[in-house]
Design a protein around this nucleic acid. Structure first.
Lengths: 153, 153
DNA sequence: AAGCATGTCTATCGATTTGATAGACTAATA
DNA sequence: TATTAGTCTATCAAATCGATAGACATGCTT
């Protein structure tokens, strides 16, 4: 299960994606709009910036912005930065691999074999879903709901 | 990422599956064979028993055993019992659903839409993988490795 | 150069969870 | 009745989570 930090990070990322091209967004504004504690969000945004997903500008007119086009930022990359890995167990992580301390033979470990399938499936989804696509899906879902409401009247 | 408790639980489950039909296995023996702290394993096995995945017998000749055939126990059911849910976020859980406190509109939440795909993919794998299959894959992988070794000599 | 705006650094903290450990108790067998 | 072995219900230390805080640094404006 993803942590609140990751959830907040994804919320902020998507919010910044919605405003892509509109200049730096202040931390305080983002925090207020998304209902995230400001000081906590500072840490999260800095983490994303240090990972190259966001950029920032200090001083007047400063704030945070996407470092790349939303179509070029995947959910997988963001989740890896925020949560550390997509893998359900360390021994199938491709980016944060760690051998199990109590494992004699990795190659035949049944749990590892299954969890590798899980990791692959999760990565297949998240690494092939851009931040832009998420916005489009969200927007489409909102329109769909609106049409249902209009139709009901 | 799955917890050590879940990892230990799966290890124990698979170990019991290997001995399926051979009578109750004592907690102490399982703990020693799998390198799991005994008292911790007691809690884990009890949890699995209460969930109907394992059975137990007290007293002389007592111990734990599978409550069903290994082919009828899925990895998904075990992970749900041990970790609580397969879902990456509570709002897409089918067995432990919880609405996000800060979410205005679930239907159009982009994170939720993506995480639902992730949950479905994970469930698709784990719910369609029996404990028996895991043993077979593990065994096959071990034989394969052995053949490679034999061939190398 | 100073003031203001806003990000950055580096702590610290309380609550919660994790990963245990322990001993008394209960049930089953011999 | 004694022994075996699971069950109950605590308790605990360490780690992590989810924050909060104030000093500092950078950049813009005047």
């Amino acid at each position: 299960m993803i942590s609140k930090k990751t959830k907040y990070g994804l919320l902020a990322l998507l919010a910044l994606a919605r405003k892509y091209g509109a200049g730096p967004v202040q931390i305080g504004d983002l925090a207020e709009q998304e209902g995230i504690p400001k000081k906590f969000l500072e840490l999260i945004l800095l983490h994303l910036k240090n990972a190259g997903i966001l950029g920032s500008r200090k001083g007047k007119g400063g704030g945070y912005f996407l470092a790349k086009d939303p179509a070029q930022i995947t959910m997988g990359s963001a989740v890896r930065v925020l949560d550390g890995t997509l893998a359900p167990v360390p021994c199938v992580s491709e980016t944060a691999y760690q051998k199990c301390t109590e494992c004699d033979d990795e190659e035949s470990c049944g749990i590892r074999l299954v969890m590798k399938d899980v990791r692959d499936a999760v990565a297949n989804i998240l690494d092939n879903t851009s931040v832009k696509e998420v916005l489009v899906r969200s927007s489409d879902a909102a329109k769909k709901a609106k049409k249902v409401i209009d139709y009901s009247i």
